[in-house]
Nucleic acid binder design. Structure first.
Length: 277
DNA sequence: ATATCTGCCTGCTCGC
DNA sequence: TGCGAGCAGGCAGATA
């Protein structure tokens, strides 16, 4: 599923081909794809607008228009594909939920098997991303900033790190990877981490995300960039999808547990849970 | 404040 | 071989 590194890769791809492009037509095949406004209003209002810049905030893609912002969240299986030829033969064609046509003839498709992906046409990005926590790869995300957020809560580490209001962009895969890298148990209570452990977690989050961005994201099944190409970061995963295999650090068998309804992978030796946390 | 549950969705895997 | 059950999980919203 698209998390920060995948969304970053997609945003860069969109920037390369869509900046300066003007929308001449819009079509929505699954009305609920448009979160705001209505699908009808969306199709009407977006025509004539021009893409000025493409960015990312957390897991949201933000396309600045000459008036307003088009935000996209891909949730689980969403893809944004850019094509210049008619793709009716493509295997993903039946799953196109919305499309934009630009004056150049270029087309942008929101493809989503599961129909969870959402489009937002808003006047300001803050309407969509206003409540998100800091960007993990920004200068503002310091060890102190992380420590403050961890100690302000008594929640378990994994649910806390998945909370987009606490930190923006992490999902199930990269939280599991970061906790393994930092040698911290996902059930660890967030306010019990030592200074050294906070430093480790901070460095781990940065390392895991940086590497995944460099690798063009993780493709386990659905993720593709705007050119429909897979990423390669799945080759760098240490725990996600490796249950039953040997820990790359200590050789113990990677375990799987369910935490808040989500599959969670960890090394029971490297990531021990202290008695009091 | 925090935890837990449901609904949204459909393709895939598994067991019988 | 065929079929139904269960799983995958980000997020919003409701409930405890």
């Amino acid at each position: 599923m698209p998390e920060l590194p995948e969304v970053e890769t997609i945003a860069c791809g969109l920037r390369d081909c869509l900046v300066g492009q003007q929308v001449v037509a819009a079509h929505v095949a699954w009305a609920r794809t448009v979160a705001t406004p209505s699908a009808e209003a969306f199709c009407h209002d977006i025509v004539g607008r021009r893409v000025q810049e493409v960015g990312r905030r957390g897991k949201f893609i933000l396309m600045d228009l000459d008036r307003g912002v088009l935000a996209v969240h891909l949730r689980m299986t969403g893809r944004l594909l850019v094509c210049d030829a008619a793709p009716e033969q493509a295997p993903w064609w039946p799953y196109v939920r919305a499309q934009l046509t630009f004056a150049s003839g270029l087309r942008l498709y929101l493809v989503d098997v599961r129909k969870f992906g959402r489009l937002y046409l808003v006047s300001s990005a803050a309407e969509v991303v206003g409540s998100l926590g800091p960007e993990p790869l920004s200068a503002a995300f310091t060890v102190e900033a992380l420590a403050e957020r961890l100690r302000a809560s008594r929640r378990q580490l994994k649910p806390l790190l998945l909370d987009q209001r606490v930190l923006a962009g992490l999902g199930n895969i990269y939280v599991d990877e970061a906790l393994w890298e930092a040698r911290l148990h996902p059930l660890r209570r967030s306010d019990t981490l030592s200074d050294a452990e906070v430093v480790r977690l901070h460095a781990a989050i940065r390392l895991i995300l940086d590497r995944a961005v460099c690798n063009g994201g993780t493709t386990l099944r659905d993720y593709r960039n705007v050119a429909n190409e897979a990423g390669t970061n799945q080759l760098a995963l240490a725990v996600y999808g490796r249950e039953g295999k040997a820990c790359l650090r200590c050789g113990a068998i990677i375990q799987r547990l369910t935490l808040g309804g989500r599959g969670t992978r960890l090394c029971p030796v490297c990531q021990m849970l202290p008695e009091d946390a």
